[in-house]
Nucleic acid binder design. Sequence first.
DNA 1: GGATCTCATGTTTTT
DNA 2: CATGAGATCC
Length: 763
Amino acid sequence: MDYLDTLNEAQRTAVTAPPGPVLVLAGPGSGKTRVLTHRIVYLIRELNVSPWHILAVTFTNKAAKEMRQRVEEMMDGRLRGLTMGTFHSVCARILRRETDNLTWYDRDFVIFDTADQQQVVKQALKDLNLDDKKFPPRKMLNGISNAKNELITPDLYQATNYIATVTQRVYEQYQKVLHNNNAMDFDDLLMNVVLLFDERPDILAKYQQQFQHILVDEFQDTNTAQYAMIKRLAAAHNNILVVGDSDQSIYKWRGADYRNINRFRKHYPGAQQILLEQNYRSTQLILDASKAVIQHNPNRVHKDLFTERQGGDPIVLREAYNDWEEADTVVSMIQSLLLDGYAPNDFAVMYRTNAQSRALEEAFVRANMPYRLVGATQFYKRREVKDLIAYLRLVHNPLDSVSYGRIVNVPTRGIGAKSKEKLQQWAVSQGLSPAEAHIMLAIDPDVQHPFNGRAFNALSRFGALLDAWTTLRETASVGELMDAILEQTGYRDYINDGTEEGEDRWANVMELRSVAAEDTAVTLSEFLEQVALVAEADNVDAAVNASTLLTLHAAKGLEFPVVFITGLEDGILPHSRSFDDIESMAEERRLFYVGMTRAKDRLYLSHAFRRAVWGEPEVMVPSRFLNDIPAHLLDGVGTQKRREQTKSRASSWSWSGSQTTSRTTPSRRSAPQRTARKANAVPTTRRAMPEPNYQKSDFEPPRPETAVPHYKTGQKVRHVKFGDGIVIESKPTGNDAEVTVAFSDVGLKRLAASFAKLEIIDN
DNA sequence: GGATCTCATGTTTTT
DNA sequence: CATGAGATCC
């Protein structure tokens, strides 16, 4: 078999494993995608399995698409009926097919995203007369989502304290609101499939019969609901192959549990286990450094990654003065590497939080370098895009009161709060959804209603539009429907107000329009589903010749010749929210590990001396993870030395230029590089830019930190008069620092550091 | 009824 | 600092 020749022994063992449960533990870059694609080909060719009987679940839609392409190439295009996609999209497809068997939903159900969910929670709180200040929707949603991921329905919810009791009630009401809207949230897609399978053995049997061979990628990031689903599906034939790496589990906060790997072992004691340790991506040096970092996690299965790419360039570790300088250093490094023959799309710049992309973007723009941004202000979350989608959803599903609420009066059409409320009441009394009520007003001349002339006109006019679009939907394509909506609502004039931002917003609308135009045959239902389930990483288009800016999370599964990981500071990369929990800290470490192992040839690590985490810049401590990289793998000096260098550079900036350069009137950004036509390929929201001829002196002049001792949160200090206390907060103010101390005797005091002469007695 | 302003509030990661 | 809610003004 020629296609098996290209595999190493472990890979071949996995690919040709006899049917049955198989667990593949695959280190980064060990060719797990190859294993999956070859396995599918093997099943079809060698074992005569029909593609119809295969289900392959991937982490992103993009991964699914690529995998399908590869398989098709290897098979010369002979695979109809193969099911491949993310858990969410596979579940959506199943539920769509089974709507007749669902209690609460009909065929046109829509998928609500996070923003919609927020609205639903608010509605639920209102229905229950609960104060959304006391019970923040975000928190409520969290509790609900966690429950759903654990397959806990409202009536199974065990409330052990007051807040949980409230959560349960909100959860119950939340589900009711969703049902009324004919809508599911992301978690429902998973949970409802499992519930359906449990309720209807006949339906489960049907899918067991179809999916006789199941393959799951990124198994370490499955949650309870996902695992429950595949376990049920596999129960009849036991042909299940999962690929995962617990060291790359980074979605615990979303309910993922890498312990599913252990559960799998327990549940299938006879499972064949294969370890993929040969890495085909990175240099040995990068692997050694990554291994040194991940080794510090407790309770892991040891893997001995190796590669034939011996040696490699040392990892470069640098400290920058602040986030600005860090970004500039990254960009100029890229520029010099470009001269060495690298292409712009060979580079990726990674960071922990989306907010960090800003300084980087600006540096790229200043340098006139092409870049593309993954995530951040996502295309599908933009106001104008959401508006248009809300219109489409409402036409598709008139029960969707969330979408209705979003656009009843956008653009404004004389339907204010009073009218809205009155209509709401009237709709309820008529047993109609708000949208249906509008339509009723428009088409039934004899209808009894409580509205005065002006309000009636506005309300029924909107109803007439809805009615017309609903009719149009039957015959027109999605694109044509969009055109009609945009035209008849005057949306263009509303959004395109002559400002640059307005222009951008309109461009985004047209972008969405062109997505619909790509496939004229797509139904409204399909289009909406597609749009609801796009993943961050789906928009990483390798064909674009630009450097990639992305979060460490979004980097999973990708690889780049040169990787920069920025913001390696305590509080950022281990994120401050993970300090007090061992498991979260371990996950932060895995996140760093995932980032490092994306690099093929070169890895650059950086941290900043000062960074504005929120408002005022603070002095940062280099990430604790950096200490775990052996010095001989690094091109860089020790922590102390780095900081001294930063300080000496910093002091040279303070005298290098005048302080008069104005930063108060940001100029408009020069023509942005449209590196791609794709959705969020290039940030479209303009941001205030610094003077283009900026110079080093524009950096905030560093403060003479020397005189004032630096206090850290949590330090025990002694004051001559107030006695002993603990530092609550310390923030720089001009040449000084303002320290907030909780004294055991006199309580909270705010002190000027230079004045108070606090004695540090313990860290 | 609608637009604009101010104030407060809260910030990880995303299907 | 960015978004959202509430108040105020038109």
